[in-house]
Simulated scan of single mutants.
Amino acid sequence: MGLRERFDVGYPQLVLVALTVVTVVGLVLAASTSSAAFGSYNDAWDGASELREQAQATGAEGEIVRNTSRYASVSPNGTVAVVLSPESDYGPRETDRLRSFVRNGGTLLVAEDVGQHANGLLDAVGARARVTGQLLRDEQYSYQSTALPIAPNISNASLMTDVDKLTLNHGSPVAPNGATVLASSSEVAYVDSDRDGELDDAEEIGTKPVATAESVGDGRVLVVGDPSLFINAMLERSDNLAFVRSVFGVHERVLLDYSHAGGLPPLSVALLVVRDAPLLQIVVGALGIGVIGLFARYPGIARRLVDRAGPADEPSLASRPEGLAAFVRERHPDWDDERTERVIQGIMARREE
């Protein structure tokens, strides 16, 4: 028994179903993934999807945060919030929430290489460290390029367990301003002030801090001068992954703060909205049950939807004997009736098979 006879549908319907499946799958993939840099749903080299997996790998509960109101409901103790290169400033009410979160025992990790919006956040929560926004280079201790300097000077802080060095990607120094330095560059690193890729006479060589930690109230603030350290490709570089696991491993919850960053795909946003709204969960669930019940009670509805692609059982004109005869005679007027009939019978026999 062929596929057509088994399901009682014709080839047009099968083609329609196949095209529909391909289209739906494509739309779902497009709506559930992102190409934005540092995006939590971006699986490419510049995405940060690996961070969610590392939170789970360390036994912590990972969560995407779209609104700073989440800080008011989560327990600060045992929670670390990660902010990667925010695209806009945090407003007064938002910074109040983050400041309260930190002062009540939460950990805030801010990673930035420009400092345009991050420094304002650091100031608002009461942290002293600042990202300078300068480009750090190292001609001796680097990975493939001077713009990917390696920071080999690591403190003995508990957050740096199993970390011997960090690898940056177009990172920036961090001005501690009294904060504890967790990691710093080599003694031959320099700030490329004019960004020409070369060490000029006016540019000094020396160790530069790239990561700091400081206490703020009952909590603490970590500052890293490079958000790219946390992207998928850079987590594979020397001890970057160990640093992430060390920070995540001492916390019970990891909040990935995307309240001021793009890159969340629409389907993921929709799922997050439903997750955060119990009443909406009830409504969506009720609608789903209702649709299933409707098709179960009236199965003819599904059949009529499929049949809109075209009648499955009505043969085309060319498939009828008289239609075939006219078609064959039109294509081969020089054939006699016996030959035409023999060809038609052969075609009909193949169709029956």
Rank of each mutant, 00 (worst) to 15 (best):
E252K: 10
G26V: 07
R350G: 03
L51Q: 11
H260Q: 12
L305D: 00
L108N: 08
S246L: 04
V22D: 08
R103Q: 15
L109R: 06
S193V: 15
A44D: 15
G91T: 15
D43I: 14
L317N: 12
D257H: 04
D196V: 03
G78R: 08
D200R: 15
D239A: 03
G26L: 02
E252L: 03
S35F: 07
S238F: 00
L166H: 01
I292H: 04
V210T: 06
F243S: 06
V269S: 12
H260Y: 05
A270R: 10
D257Y: 02
A211W: 02
V114H: 09
Q134R: 15
A81Y: 06
E236T: 04
R128G: 12
G249H: 01
A277W: 02
A349F: 08
V274T: 14
R275D: 14
F230T: 04
A157T: 10
N153S: 15
T146W: 06
T167G: 09
E5C: 00
L229W: 01
V188N: 10
I231D: 14
A175P: 00
V28L: 13
Y258A: 08
L122N: 09
D96A: 09
V28N: 03
S184Y: 02
S88P: 01
G62M: 07
Q281Y: 02
R220S: 09
L16W: 08
G310H: 04
T207Q: 14
E236C: 02
G285D: 05
P173N: 13
V28W: 02
V181D: 11
L84K: 05
A111W: 07
G346W: 02
A129C: 01
V80T: 04
S316N: 15
L256A: 05
I301A: 09
V22E: 11
N42V: 13
V283I: 02
A312F: 03
M234N: 12
E203G: 10
E5A: 10
I301V: 12
F248E: 00
E236I: 00
S185I: 01
V291M: 05
E198F: 07
R97W: 02
L51R: 06
F248Y: 08
L159R: 13
R137S: 06
D257C: 07
Q144M: 15
E187S: 11
L241N: 12
V21W: 04
F38I: 10
A81R: 01
V188P: 00
K165T: 12
S85T: 08
S186W: 06
W335E: 13
P227F: 04
P149C: 00
I64H: 12
Q281W: 02
F7M: 13
P12G: 05
R99S: 13
R339W: 04
E198I: 14
A202K: 14
Q54T: 03
G262K: 10
V110K: 09
D138Y: 01
N156P: 00
P152K: 05
E353M: 01
V216P: 10
Y143G: 07
V24K: 11
L108A: 03
V9H: 08
A261T: 13
V254W: 01
A124C: 11
G262I: 02
K208S: 11
I64F: 04
